[in-house]
């Protein structure tokens, strides 16, 4: 069986690289995007099982990406875990209301993040197939 695919959206290549290693060790496949625009494009193309999303992004910040995902018929059911350097006080509620499944502040504890991914994925898997 194919491993679940996770889209990592972050403008820091180091984070994407480090997180990819961790996710692969936990038997997840990863795809990556470094800005808001390519995040949507990548989501449409790859149909990931889950998106790990940074909030501070070039070309459309995380909230814009969240809204685009929610507004899309095909992408709205992909769970999104927000992983950001921004403070939880002013962003967590906003992110959850915008449709995020969970909110983590960087650096997130590996065990907690992996537990959240595991808890989120079985419910969302498999992604609804496209009509065409």
């Amino acid at each position: 069986m194919e491993n679940p695919k996770i889209l990592i959206v972050d403008d820091d290549p180091n984070l994407r690289h480090g997180l990819r290693t961790r996710l692969r060790a936990n038997h997840y496949d990863t795809v990556q995007a470094s800005d808001g625009y390519s995040a949507i494009a990548m989501a449409q193309k790859e149909r990931p099982a889950l998106i790990i999303l940074d909030l501070g992004l070039p070309a459309g910040d995380g909230f814009v990406v969240l809204k685009r995902l929610q507004d899309s018929d095909t992408l709205s059911n992909i769970p999104v875990i927000v992983l950001t350097a921004r403070h939880a006080d002013s962003n967590e509620q906003q992110a959850l209301q915008a449709g995020a499944t969970a909110f983590f502040q960087k650096p997130a504890d590996n065990r907690e993040l992996m537990a959240m991914i595991r808890a989120t994925l079985p419910n969302a898997w498999p992604v609804t197939a496209l009509p065409s």
Partner: peptide, 14 residues
């Protein structure tokens, strides 16, 4: 500071 810190954390824990 958080951004490099996160990278260091990830690589170290990996």
């Amino acid at each position: 500071l958080r951004t490099p810190l996160t990278a260091v954390y990830l690589f170290t824990t990996n």
